[in-house]
Design a protein around this nucleic acid. Structure first.
Lengths: 156, 156
DNA sequence: TTATATGCAAACAGTTTGCATGGGT
DNA sequence: ACCCATGCAAACTGTTTGCATATAA
């Protein structure tokens, strides 16, 4: 009955108001990286007694609690996703705006080493790739197109 | 007499007004990554007949012309630097806010490969490292501290 | 019951823009 | 002379906040 993120809120002793429960549910069910306005739209659909201000406040609270992560994919508005195990990165399709997630151990190690070489300990980082879907290679006729799936997570 | 960036403006046929010349000079002389307000401050010091609006307009124009690059190091304001040969990245000292530039061929190749593996051609990307200066390793007593110099460019 | 969360609208920060004027070419 | 650039202030966008009210614990 309580959404995954709703449960996390309770674990951390947050007061569970009606609007928080709704927002938590929307976040739990989101398969994408919605911005505040989109969250508000989805939440208001479930319970109209909700204001954008509350969404902003909730989203900030959950970020402070480590439940949510804020992203900036350009376009001016912050976008949110539930915190998950292990770093992952985002590739943004410049044509469609679609976001594809991927993991990359090699990259994680590389940047840690770079920071270290410069005399620093890495605290956090930001990586976004902006790319264009490669036109189906003229060379391979019937070859299967690699299935880069939005929302799924590609391991490397 | 004309600053480096001023010359680039002329090459691209931009009308050289007094304020553009001043802004171009400020940009040419900047060793850091100033935001608009800072650019405005420096420009106004050379010629008070300048407004923030003009700085915003100029900075946007120069970005469109490929003369400038806009950066986002967090903190809400866009920061600018002259376009230079070859990609480079930024490490932001979380204590001081200082920005250290570095190059890394390996990283450049890695992300290109990642995009390709996902079925994309890399268009652009964003990488920022946030890090904390490593406390002088307790192990090495008199050893020289590695010279990670702000402003300089570390090659790897 | 009591502290905290909410709605509303006003405040904010960074940036853009409409319009009349000024200035390069 | 012509068109573009500028200044000014008002507009805009995303986000935060003060205050009176509502609500979970």
């Amino acid at each position: 009955m309580e959404s995954r993120i709703g449960r996390m809120c309770i674990e951390r002793g947050l007061k569970m108001t009606g609007q928080r429960r709704v927002i938590a549910r929307v976040l739990s069910e989101a398969q994408d990286h919605p911005d505040v306005e989109e969250l508000y739209r989805r939440a208001a659909q479930l319970d109209s007694r909700i204001s954008v201000a509350t969404v902003y406040r909730t989203v900030r609270l959950l970020e402070e609690k480590g439940i949510l992560e804020r992203r900036d994919f350009g376009g001016g508005r912050a976008r949110y996703e539930a915190t998950e195990e292990g770093d992952h990165y985002h590739l943004i399709d410049v044509e469609t705006g679609k976001v594809i997630e991927f993991e990359d151990k090699e990259h994680a190690e590389l940047i840690r080493r770079i920071a270290r070489d410069l005399g620093f300990d890495l605290v956090s980082h930001r990586l976004e790739l902006f790319a264009r879907r490669r036109p189906a290679d003229a060379g391979k006729d019937t070859a299967a197109t690699p299935p880069a799936r939005t929302g799924g997570r590609s391991k490397r």
